[in-house]
Simulated scan of single mutants.
Amino acid sequence: MLDTYKFFAQLAQTWGLAYFVAVFLIVVAYALWPSNKKKFDDAARIPLRED
């Protein structure tokens, strides 16, 4: 039981880290992609608009 737990804990830590790093890089690339600039600029101005 203990060996199985250690194996799955090691697996989750290693692949979990790789998964979160990959997701982080995808989100950063999406946010900085030039074609998304207008969409994000429009969203940033929403609080300043008069209804």
Results as ranks from 00 to 15, higher is better:
A31C: 12
K38Y: 05
F40E: 00
D51W: 13
V28T: 07
V27K: 09
T14L: 08
T14W: 11
F40K: 05
K37H: 10
P34S: 10
G16N: 01
V21D: 12
L17P: 03
M1S: 05
R45L: 15
A31D: 12
A43R: 13
F7P: 02
K6P: 12
V23A: 02
A9V: 06
L17H: 07
A43M: 13
L32D: 14
F20K: 09
D41K: 08
Y5F: 14
L2N: 04
N36I: 07
V28Y: 15
A31G: 10
V21S: 00
K38V: 09
F24A: 15
A43Y: 14
Y5M: 11
D42T: 05
I26A: 07
L25V: 05
A18F: 06
V23P: 01
S35C: 06
V28G: 13
A44C: 07
R45S: 15
Y30D: 06
Q13R: 10
A29N: 01
K6L: 15
L11R: 10
A22V: 15
P34Y: 10
F7L: 04
L32T: 03
T14M: 06
A31T: 05
W15L: 04
W15F: 08
K6H: 14
V23S: 03
Q10E: 13
V28E: 03
V23T: 13
V21M: 01
Y30R: 06
V27P: 12
R45T: 14
D42N: 04
Y19W: 11
K39C: 09
P34K: 11
F20V: 14
Q13V: 08
Y5S: 06
R45G: 14
F40G: 01
A18T: 04
A43N: 09
W33I: 10
A18I: 04
L11W: 10
V28S: 15
F20G: 04
L48F: 14
L25F: 10
G16Y: 02
M1G: 08
K38M: 11
S35F: 04
F8W: 00
L32G: 09
N36V: 07
L17T: 13
D51Y: 14
A44L: 08
K39A: 15
F8K: 07
W33K: 10
L25T: 03
A29G: 06
D42L: 03
Y19M: 03
I26Q: 11
R45H: 15
A44Y: 07
A44W: 05
A12D: 00
A31F: 15
P34C: 11
A18V: 01
Q13C: 05
F20H: 11
A9M: 07
T4R: 04
L48Q: 12
I46P: 05
F7C: 03
T4C: 03
Y19E: 02
W33F: 15
F20S: 11
L11K: 07
V23F: 02
A22G: 02
Y30F: 08
A29L: 05
F7H: 05
F7V: 01
L32P: 01
L11C: 01
I26F: 11
T4I: 13
A9D: 12
A44Q: 06
A29M: 08
A31Q: 12
P34R: 12
T14I: 03
F20P: 03
L32E: 13
Y30T: 03
D3H: 15
